[in-house]
Computed example of a mutant assay.
Amino acid sequence: MAQPLFPVDQETRQWATFLHLSLLAGLLVPGAGFVLPIVLWQIKKNELPGIDAHGKVVANWIISALIYGVISGMLVFVLVGFPLLGVLGLLTLIFPIIGAIKANEGELWVYPLSIRVFS
């Protein structure tokens, strides 16, 4: 569900791409995938107005993934949680990559299954 934004300059597209890819920082440093995107969003949202929408999409996904992870973790006791955690793991790899590609093209891609806390 890509939404074209107003004409986006190269710097905004670049930082939006970094913002989406920063979700993957948790693969290198535990917890960085939660902190780094929020920090980038807060630092750049006033300087580059187009970043605010991308930051909200990323923050919504972080919150959604945490909720889905907790629910899946509880469902491990009835064995349903194992495949759900596997699917969630794949989605947390795939969604930021698609979001980054779309951001680099100047589009805003709202992650599917994301709970809209920030709009």
Rank of each mutant, 00 (worst) to 15 (best):
E11D: 15
E11V: 15
T12W: 02
R13K: 15
R13F: 08
R13S: 12
Q14K: 15
Q14D: 14
W15C: 10
W15K: 15
W15F: 13
A16T: 11
A16R: 10
T17Q: 10
T17D: 07
T17R: 14
F18H: 14
F18M: 14
F18T: 13
L19T: 11
H20V: 09
L21G: 07
L21K: 06
L21Q: 08
S22K: 00
S22F: 07
L23H: 10
L23V: 05
L23I: 07
L23Y: 09
L24A: 07
L24Y: 06
L24P: 07
A25K: 00
A25M: 09
A25S: 13
G26V: 04
G26Q: 03
G26R: 02
L27K: 00
L27D: 00
L27H: 01
L27I: 06
L28A: 12
L28C: 05
L28R: 00
L28I: 08
V29C: 02
V29P: 02
V29N: 01
P30W: 00
P30T: 06
G31A: 03
G31F: 05
G31D: 04
A32T: 02
A32E: 03
A32K: 01
G33N: 01
G33W: 01
G33D: 01
G33T: 02
F34H: 07
F34W: 11
F34V: 11
V35Y: 01
V35S: 00
L36I: 10
L36K: 00
L36F: 08
L36A: 12
L36W: 08
P37T: 05
P37A: 08
I38Y: 11
I38G: 01
I38T: 09
V39D: 08
L40I: 13
W41T: 04
W41F: 12
Q42G: 12
Q42V: 11
Q42N: 15
I43S: 10
I43L: 13
I43E: 08
K44R: 14
K44W: 13
K44M: 08
K44Q: 13
K44H: 13
K45P: 03
N46H: 13
N46S: 13
